[in-house]
């Protein structure tokens, strides 16, 4: 029965009195779905777990992340760029170095790309669903006892996403610079294009696409204005990133894969397992 009673005040800001409870319809089972809804969380868990395991190992190992002039290349793994510590192998660093950091240089900087992805609206969806099971799939029960979402500590910190986005942009500039350096072939004709060059270039492009398609970026570009007509430039930016934003999920996955691939490839080259094939 749905009467809406007259109330004295026009807007009532109190919590709605929950007269809304009552027996739910349908059977008391976790889901009535019979399709294979669990496939998607299983795939997400497998890929993300493999990535985390690989990335942790690669970040801690602290070697074979740079293929330098001894191999006639200038290729640095995105996990280690920018390389900022005194322990960075010669040629891999382009700035003053920090001497007190003695463990792997990757661990100094990885917090930023990691934070960017961890607070990303798409990855949030992915891991809340597949790791947290809140919910594992649509209309499948989220069986946590209580739920407060992102309204309290610690998840309220998801709101800092835009700052990671800003840092991400700095990283994109650096990794783009790395991609340009990847054209240099010291002792092999000066410049050229190798498989490594292509990989680092696609890595940089995909990271730009991933960043520009970010929801915070879309908001900051123009989404936050009330009237596009009054802000024509903001509207232009917004219109440019909006179609990218629609593909944010795809960019998130592909760029993740390519980052790992870049690291693995350079690792194989740097360790001498394979030779980076020069195309021209």
């Amino acid at each position: 029965m749905t009467t809406v009673e007259n109330s004295a005040t026009r807007v009532d800001n109190s919590e709605t009195p929950v007269v809304l409870g009552g027996t739910r319809g349908g059977p008391d089972v976790s889901t009535v779905r019979k399709d294979r809804w669990w496939i998607s969380p299983v795939i997400t868990v497998s890929i993300l777990t493999s990535f985390v395991v690989y990335a942790t190992w690669a970040a801690f190992v602290g070697k074979n992340y740079y293929a330098g002039s001894s191999l006639h290349r200038d290729l640095i793994s995105p996990f280690y760029s920018p390389c900022l510590t005194a322990s960075c192998v010669p040629g891999s660093t382009h700035s003053p170095t920090i001497s007190w950091w003695t463990i792997s240089p990757a661990l100094l900087i990885l917090i930023f790309p990691l934070g960017f992805r961890l607070t990303c609206y798409y990855y949030r969806r992915a891991y809340y669903r597949s790791f947290w099971w809140a919910p594992p799939a649509c209309s499948v029960v989220d069986s946590h006892k209580s739920y407060s979402g992102e309204s309290r500590f610690p998840l309220i910190f998801q709101n800092v996403h835009r700052y990671f986005f800003y840092f991400g942009l700095i990283f994109n500039v650096i990794l783009t610079y790395d991609a340009i350096l990847a054209f240099s072939m010291p002792g092999e004709g000066g410049i050229g294009v190798s498989i490594g060059t292509l990989i680092l270039c696609s890595n940089a492009v995909l990271l730009w696409l991933y960043s520009l398609s970010c929801h915070s970026c879309r908001h900051l570009c123009g989404g936050q204005v009330r009237s596009f007509a009054k802000h024509p430039w903001r509207h232009k930016f917004w219109k440019f990133v909006t179609p990218l934003n629609a593909k944010h999920m795809q960019f998130a996955w592909i760029s993740l894969f390519v980052v790992a691939l870049s690291d693995a490839y350079i690792r194989l080259v740097a360790s001498g397992t394979i030779t980076d094939f020069k195309i021209f």
């Binding site: 919590e15 709605t16 929950v18 809304l20 809140a134 919910p135 209309s139 946590h144 209580s146 739920y147």
Partner: peptide, 14 residues
Amino acid sequence: VCHVIRDHEENKGK
């Protein structure tokens, strides 16, 4: 379909 209220009746008021 929103699990915030579908699976957590206590959230309905807020």
